[in-house]
């Protein structure tokens, strides 16, 4: 029996679709099993087509992107209603994504900065007619509706998505691993004694040794190992885009915890080394952090 699948895109870069299409000929293995009922990125469907479907009629609903506008929220709720199994697909959906970093500022400030004060703006105005309107704060999608499954990644690799689809089709279990990127990384690790942190363009990277040992902020130690250590393998420090392993509640706090243990620097030097801690430690999951939820409550109180 073919499974009916839907892919919904909320606020995101649609990179997850790109990653899925990158399966190339392997797509042919799974496509005969799937009946696509909604996938605006690839097939010409409109929102009303999704709304017209009976409830619980989609076997697998993939939701990509986070809710920044009221329209996103409506689409997410519609997907929930129409799908039997809902899958948070990609870091935006699981944790709020890069756009979650915007939670540092109130939405009014963000809108002004974007539409009125940006250097490239020649006709400053805030578009209002026929617009869905913004949500005040970005939350991870699982805080809005219930999800049966999460698959983080920015984007999840083609293999990740393939594995999930295959597991769902065959009924095999699929759990997120507790391992980290370091477990998949081929580089040689030693005892860590970091005396100075370098930016990626500074110094020369030894391709055989662990990047963190050399003083580059590679976040593989606190990041879930699903990607096959793509970045460290090519000498690029991990940015933590897949988010933390499932047992970790706050990615940035865990990173700080580890850095405090391995950095042999004075407190002042350590503070100076990270002028933008939120940007450095919460690349795609600030919206899922304790601090973001504190900010949300704080703004709510101000409105009252």
């Amino acid at each position: 029996m073919t499974k009916r699948v839907a892919f919904a895109q909320l606020t995101s870069c649609w990179g997850c679709d790109q990653s899925l299409v990158d399966l190339h000929f392997r797509l042919l293995d799974v496509l005969p099993e799937l009946e696509i009922v909604y996938w605006p990125a690839v097939v010409d469907y409109k929102l009303k087509d999704l709304e017209a479907l009976p409830d619980d009629s989609i076997h697998l609903g993939f939701v990509e992107g986070s809710c920044r506008t009221n329209e996103d929220l409506h689409l997410l709720k519609t997907m929930r209603k129409k799908s039997k199994l809902l899958i948070a697909w990609g870091s935006c959906s699981c944790y709020g994504g890069v756009q979650g970093l915007g939670n540092q500022w109130p939405i009014e400030e963000l809108v002004e900065r974007k539409f009125l004060q940006a250097d490239s703006v020649t006709d400053p105005r805030i578009p209002e007619s026929n617009m869905p309107g913004f949500l005040g704060i970005v939350k991870p999608n699982p805080a809005h509706v219930k999800f049966e499954m999460v698959l983080p990644g920015c984007p999840p690799t083609s293999d990740n998505t393939y594995d999930v689809v295959e597991a769902l089709l065959t009924g095999k279990p699929f759990d997120l691993p507790e391992r980290t990127v370091c477990d998949e990384c081929p580089k040689e690790r030693e005892d860590k004694h970091i005396v100075k942190f370098y930016r990626t363009h500074e110094g020369k990277i030894d391709p055989n040794k662990c990047l963190l040992d050399q003083g580059y902020l590679c976040l593989g130690f606190a990041t879930i190992g699903l990607c096959g250590a793509q970045c460290p393998t090519v000498n690029t420090p991990c940015k933590g885009c897949f988010g933390p392993p499932p047992s970790v509640k706050d990615h940035g706090a865990k990173i700080i915890s580890a850095l405090g243990a391995v950095a042999e620097m004075s407190p002042e030097e350590l503070k100076e080394a990270f002028p933008d801690p939120i940007g450095s430690f919460y690349f795609t999951d600030y919206a899922a952090s304790y601090l973001s939820s504190i900010t949300a409550k704080k703004r709510k109180e101000k409105e009252e």
């Binding site: 540092q104 850095l259 405090g260 002042e268 900010t295 704080k298």
Partner: peptide, 19 residues
């Protein structure tokens, strides 16, 4: 000493978040 290192980072993180 490990706590001291963590604390300065935590402090600057909290401050950046507007808390």
């Amino acid at each position: 000493l490990k706590m001291r290192g963590r604390f300065v980072l935590l402090e600057s993180l909290v401050e950046q978040a507007g808390f």
